[in-house]
């Protein structure tokens, strides 16, 4: 268990929890919850600087890029071109080559636009990015994204921010069993048991934002997620018992006092 690290591309982590930095009420809470989560990797979004508020505090004043691996995302991109532009800028800003690609289909479902996602992934991989790619829970698409050179495939558990858990645990399992790159369940995790379940199914890591940021006690939920991911991973490695249709007595069925 001590040697059980999470390897993605050329990076290696102890924690199998990746956290987001969105939706928090303030930067201080972002910092404290991120620390409590034990995560070593945190996603960030790329946006225009507000020119009139140049002196204002910034997320990276609280989340130290020397301490955390910063994973820039392409949230809000609806086509390959915008996603590629965004990540080129992110790489210039911080020198980061490990990135989270997500190209969305529409604002109501936030489901991935798979066609544009594949297009963007092809270009980014050629440009030397290590692409962790958000996608739907389709095993065929997951294989395609691996084939174009993504370093991790990140199927959704359910729509972004929905907190509904894993809609299709069987597909997460199928995707994992076919994959040669790490599988990260990204989106949909609502509470600790969802995160544990993802890892129990064999997912290599979980990416969680809203479930922590929207909890009443963000730091406590961050700890719960840290523990759930660890527990799920241990259960996966331990190998679960088979499910049976009928009972199987736990105590010996011989040596009764009435025999």
């Amino acid at each position: 268990m001590n040697n059980d690290t999470f390897k993605v591309g050329t990076y290696e982590f102890t924690s199998r929890l990746i956290v987001g930095s969105g939706k928090y009420k303030d930067f201080e809470t972002t910092k404290l919850a991120t620390e409590a989560s034990g995560a070593e990797m945190i996603t960030v979004a790329v946006r225009r600087v507000n020119i009139t508020e140049a002196g204002k505090e910034n997320l990276l004043d609280y989340i130290d890029p020397k301490k955390y691996t910063i994973l820039p995302n392409t949230a809000g991109c609806f086509n390959a071109e915008d996603a590629i532009r965004t990540l080129r800028l992110a790489r210039e800003a911080g020198g980061w080559d490990l990135v989270k690609l997500e190209v969305l289909g529409d604002t109501q479902t936030l489901y991935p636009n798979v066609v544009e996602t594949i297009k963007a992934a092809e270009v980014l991989v050629k440009e030397g990015f290590q692409v962790m790619v958000y996608t739907n829970d389709d095993p065929i698409v997951a294989t395609k994204l691996e084939d174009v050179g993504c370093v991790a495939v990140m199927p959704l558990g359910n729509p972004i921010g929905s907190g509904r858990g894993l809609a299709n645990p069987f597909n997460i399992r199928v995707i994992k069993e076919r994959a040669n790159v790490p599988i990260v369940v990204d989106a949909g995790i609502g509470t600790a048991s969802d995160a544990a379940k993802a890892l129990e199914l064999g997912a290599d890591a979980a990416l969680i934002n809203t479930a922590i940021a929207e909890a009443k006690d963000e730091c406590l939920m961050a700890e719960a997620m840290r523990d759930a991911v660890r527990a799920g991973r241990k259960a996966f490695l331990a190998g679960r018992m088979p499910k049976r249709a009928f009972a199987s007595a736990s105590s010996p069925t011989e040596g009764y006092i009435w025999d």
């Binding site: 987001g20 930095s21 969105g22 939706k23 928090y24 972002t30 996603t43 960030v44 979004a45 790329v46 946006r47 225009r48 600087v49 020119i51 910034n58 997320l59 990276l60 910063i70 820039p72 995302n73 949230a75 965004t86 800028l89 992110a90 800003a93 911080g94 972004i160 921010g161 990416l207 934002n209 809203t210």
Partner: peptide
């Protein structure tokens, strides 16, 4: 000209 920085996101 576009000038961008990093903000909170998931």
């Amino acid at each position: 000209i576009e000038i961008v920085h990093m903000i909170g996101g998931g």
